[in-house]
């Protein structure tokens, strides 16, 4: 593509805002955190006799923490536009409601 064309694209780009670039250090830090959480989950499960019972809730809380870190940092949502954030949080919220309601249904059946 010619240089002229490049400039034209830039002129017409409707989002002139400066792009946030996540540093390698930041990404590696998140990665270390994710690996540590994985080790914690596995240890709690393998040594469960010495710890509190490894319930579904514990598993889901740790997994959700990991998923949030991936979404916010690896998927860059933390620095994305508000539209994306609102969309993602609403969809995940609705999905959580779906899970909770179904669980309540089954747990309260006679």
């Amino acid at each position: 593509m010619s240089k002229q064309e490049n400039e034209a694209t830039r002129v017409l780009d409707d989002d002139p805002k400066e792009q946030h670039i996540t540093s390698f250090g930041n990404l590696v830090g998140i990665w270390v955190g994710l690996l540590l959480l994985t080790v914690v989950t596995v240890l709690i499960s393998v040594l469960h006799k010495n710890f509190i019972a490894f319930s579904v809730v514990t598993a889901l809380v740790i997994a959700s923490t990991k998923a949030l870190a991936v979404i916010n940092h690896f998927m860059h949502l933390k620095y994305d536009s508000r539209v994306l954030k609102v969309m993602v949080y609403i969809v995940f919220g609705v999905f959580t409601v779906l899970i909770v309601l179904t669980a309540l249904d089954y747990f309260t059946r006679a």
Binding site: T41, S45, H48, A53, F54, V56, A59, A67, V70, F74
Partner: peptide, 16 residues
């Protein structure tokens, strides 16, 4: 794909 595995792993492998 990574996030899905984050949930699959504890649910299938780590339930005791």
């Amino acid at each position: 794909v990574d996030i899905i595995w984050i949930f699959l792993f504890p649910l299938f492998y780590l339930i005791h």
